[in-house]
Write a protein that binds this DNA or RNA. Structure first.
Lengths: 81, 81
DNA sequence: CGTCATTAGGGTAATTTGGGTA
DNA sequence: CCTGTCCAAATTACCCTAATGA
């Protein structure tokens, strides 16, 4: 069950979007690998406000995949010397 | 229909045929997906009292969707360009 | 009645945080 | 200004078996 549709005993019907599709997140290590930098550097970007973060209840950071990919795509553009 | 139909901003559709509202619950796997952590980590949060839990008669944990979403939003930081 | 994915447990690696420094 | 590294403490991930849920 992926939490798409639930029917309570009282007849309540709840349709919930797939949690996976709501907001794909990346770990610090994954972002670091994508940018070919140290995870610590990614943390500094987050601290500086260059990257938005979602925190786990334990304080670890998670990064939005869409935002990271967008930043990566921008950097991949060829620049004229 | 005698029921009440509500559509949340996140797309969740709730049809309640009775004035009594039933709280939507999430499985450990769903909460883990939303936070991008292991399901066992969600269990640790519950043990530590950081998440309120609803137990099935068999001992499995269920989590309140509203609480999970509010915790996710709380840690969000906006990007400063 | 079985079937199979998920969860609860517990234990042990791996990762992340934060500060300070190069 | 930006990045990599060392450190200790905290958090999270992965391993297993047995039980629960759908």
């Amino acid at each position: 069950m992926k939490g798409i549709k639930t029917i309570a005993s009282d007849g309540t019907i709840t349709i919930t979007p797939d949690p996976v599709a709501i907001e794909p997140l990346l770990t610090p290590a994954e972002v670091a690998t994508m940018f070919r930098v140290d995870p610590k550097t990614v943390t500094r970007w987050a601290k500086a406000g260059r990257l938005s973060t979602v925190r786990t209840l334990g304080g670890h950071r998670r990064y939005r995949e869409a935002e990271v990919r967008s930043l990566l795509a921008f950097g991949e553009q060829k620049r004229v010397q």
